[in-house]
Design a binder for these strands. Structure first.
Length: 710
DNA sequence: TTGCCTCGAGTTCT
DNA sequence: CTCGAGGCAA
């Protein structure tokens, strides 16, 4: 007796908890405005779970605790749709939308009717059945007549109310679109990628033992596939895999957009009111649904979303335009499986599939080999794409892209096309797994990929492709900014031998340039006198670029514009930079061992030093002006350099002195402060002794420069 | 060693 | 714009 009463009390509390949780789910997931904190919500959930554990007889399938059941779903059943789910006719252009409207107007006998515009979710259409206020069945659209029973998986979607409040019709069906957020999609794929890395590791072991390898999981191509995949998935095989699937399920959501069949209530008279009514019942409807009085207004909505689609957290592929008035809808009816009272305006695709014909490789300025896909031209987002970068070998492997694959191309928020991944189901078996060439495609030098690095590099510093890229970099806008020398001119100059490195640009003459042959559209053409003039003028002007740009233009690995700025500021002159030891370099903030090494290696290279010399001869500014004569740390001191120095030439040493405010004289006098003595000095060293002038070895001189620089 | 944060390098089409 | 790499702080 007493137990019964107890059970009654508990049951009441359980019911109360369930409706409380349902209410807060609604506030949180549907209205997006929670009333209680997550902790308070968790507390409600915990209490309910505790009670259900103690009194299992009180557990019902629509209890919120049943949402995240990790239990495997038994085989899916087939569900017969009581009222078939129609598909929509598509309009790919304004004209088609107008044509649709004209036809509808003709049938209606008037063109004066209101429209409803709904963002067309790129997801999976489902039908949900409610009986006596409880969610009892959910099914995919399938072919429109029969779909798959996915009730259990749908239960995990929090914005699907498991139980409705009072006032719900006794039995009815609603329709909506299950979708995955872009963010959720990224996360799921990320987890699958981690999983694959793990599988790879395991496979390595298995391969050693000669055992059969485990299969890698394929990534979801887009949020829609991910949504469809997760809503139809059964049990997971491993714990980790289950994690990925849980993430997937958690990232699912739904918008309800239509009322199917119903019993025990009257239907609202318009689509717009239906949406309001569904919202009131507790269903999540898209807040961006809008009513349009005229077609032009609807058209405007379509274009608006076409521009703003990226700003949404989920993907839409168009706008559904429906005639608002239900009685008019009935009058118009359907042709085949397409209603005449609605149409889907489809955006131009930002995704498309095409064939990956081959994978080619570019050689960058640093010698990096950059693979790119050569594609069968395909229109994506209003542009024809025939090439797309593939970044590096690992990326190709990770995505499992093979030559001959049908691949998905997309132009995301930006303009740059990406290869999303292969359509594995379209494989013929003829596809080839790609591997990086072992020789540079330009100069056939061996290729090296260092341990732990993503990129492969051509080992030949004289590689023509590298020279070309370096030239381009040197004249580019952020570097020396020499207008007139672009891709073709640069290539032509290198090819005909008038230029071997950037230093040679400065000895070009108009006469030389005029006869330069450029690859024209049909026939090769001459560069021409005006352009030649311009190039020489531009080159002349570029001599005045600040030191930081010159340093940047050299193209030292790991030295970009930012680092160049810092180095210019710190050392004040190219020669000081060239003379700096690895330790000196590392004393500069943000310069670590790698960058220091790279700079040092650059200036240790004979060819590079020659480039600097050419620049110097040409009169390119190699020191920061601000280290003004009168201001430098060596202000008022006179130096004389004699003999051969190892770190730099005599001219360079003198230049350095001048940059630091000192002066460099050619002969030793009593007024000379220091004589720098190099290898095999001449008479000047003796003179210094005579006059009692201090002498410096190269070593001492360098450390003096370093000190004054610090 | 790990997790920011910033910088460097390469990139497509019109 | 995106990804990888380098530097630096905890």
């Amino acid at each position: 007796m007493e137990e019964d009463r107890d059970l009654q009390t508990v049951k009441l509390r359980v019911e109360e908890l369930r409706s409380l949780i349902a209410y807060h789910d609604y506030r949180y997931y549907v209205l997006d405005s929670p009333e209680i904190s997550d902790a308070q919500y968790d507390e409600l959930m915990r209490e309910l779970r505790r009670l259900e554990e103690r009194y299992p007889q009180l557990i019902t399938p629509d209890s919120p605790t049943q949402r995240v059941s990790g239990q495997p779903v038994a085989a899916f059943g087939i569900v017969e749709h009581r009222l078939p789910l129609l598909s929509l006719a598509n309009a790919f252009a304004e004209a088609e939308l107008r044509a649709w409207h004209r036809r509808a107007s003709a049938l209606a006998g008037s063109d004066d009717f209101t429209l409803v515009c709904e963002p067309k979710m790129d997801g999976l259409a489902v039908a949900l059945v409610y009986e006596n206020g409880a969610f009892v069945q959910g099914a995919t659209r399938g072919d429109g007549r029969r779909g798959e029973n996915i009730t259990e998986n749908l239960r995990t979607i929090r914005s699907i109310p498991l139980r409705l409040g009072k006032g719900a019709p006794s039995r009815f069906e609603v329709r909506g679109e299950v979708y995955m957020t872009k963010q959720g999609f990224e996360k799921v794929n990320q987890e699958i990628m981690w999983l694959n890395e793990e599988i790879d590791r395991v496979n390595e072991e298995l391969a050693k033992k000669g055992k059969k390898e485990k299969k890698r999981l394929s990534l979801f191509a887009n949020p829609r596939n991910a949504a469809a995949g997760s809503v139809r998935q059964r049990d997971a095989r491993s714990v980790r895999q289950r994690d990925a699937r849980m993430t997937a399920k958690r990232s699912l959501d739904i918008f309800i957009y239509a009322l199917g069949w119903l019993e025990g209530a009257a239907r609202p008279p318009t689509q717009w009111e239906t949406l309001q009514w569904l919202g009131k019942l507790g269903f999540r409807t898209n807040p961006y649904n809008a009513r349009a009085r005229y077609l032009n207004e609807a058209m405007h909505v379509c274009y608006e979303w076409q521009d703003r689609r990226e700003s949404l957290p989920y993907e839409i592929d168009g706008v559904v335009v429906k005639i608002d008035d239900l009685s008019l809808q009935e009058r118009l009816g359907a042709v085949g499986r397409e209603p005449r009272w609605a149409i889907a305006y489809k955006f131009p695709p930002i995704q498309a599939t095409t064939k990956l014909l081959k994978i080619k490789v570019n050689v960058g300025r640093t010698g990096s080999l950059n693979p790119y896909a050569v594609l069968e031209p395909v229109r994506v987002g209003g542009a024809t794409v025939e090439r797309a970068t593939l970044h590096n070998e690992d990326d190709i492997r990770r995505k499992d892209i093979r030559i001959g694959d049908t691949v998905i191309i997309q132009r995301a928020g930006d303009v740059i096309p990406q290869v999303v991944g292969p359509v594995v189901s379209l494989r013929t078996g003829e596809e080839e797994v790609y591997s990086m060439p072992e020789q540079c495609p330009e100069c056939h030098a061996p290729v090296r990929r260092l341990e732990g690095e993503a990129m492969s590099y051509c080992t030949n510093t004289a590689c023509p492709a590298q020279r070309f890229a370096l030239m381009e970099h040197f004249v580019s806008r952020d570097a020396m900014d020499i207008e007139g020398i672009g891709q073709s001119t640069g290539a032509a100059l290198l090819e005909n031998g008038s230029v071997a490195d950037p230093g040679d640009i400065y000895s070009l003459t108009v006469d030389q340039l005029v006869y330069l042959m450029l690859p024209g559209k049909d026939h090769p053409r001459r560069l021409g006198a005006p352009t030649a003039r311009k190039i020489v003028d531009e080159t002349e002007r570029s001599k005045q670029r600040p030191l930081s740009r010159v340093i940047f233009a050299l193209g030292i690995r790991h030295v970009g514009s930012e680092m160049a700025d810092r180095l210019a500021e710190h050392f004040g002159a190219i020669d000081a930079l060239a003379a700096a030891s690895v330790e000196d370099l590392e004393s500069v903030p943000t310069v670590g061992p790698k960058i220091a090494q790279s700079v040092r290696a650059y200036f240790d290279d004979e060819d590079n030093r020659r480039i600097i010399e050419k620049l110097r001869q040409a009169g390119v500014r190699l020191a920061e002006e601000r280290a003004a004569r009168e201001e430098g740390p060596l202000r008022g001191l006179t130096f004389v350099v004699t003999g051969t120095l190892s770190a730099f030439t005599r001219e360079e040493a003198e230049e350095r002195v001048r940059e630091l405010g000192g002066s460099a004289a050619s002969s030793v006098t009593r007024k000379t402060d220091y004589v720098v003595v190099g290898e095999s000095p001449g008479s000047k060293a003796q003179k210094a002794q005579e006059y009692g002038v201090k002498t410096l070895t190269e070593e001492e001189f360098l450390s003096m420069l370093r000190r004054t620089n610090a």
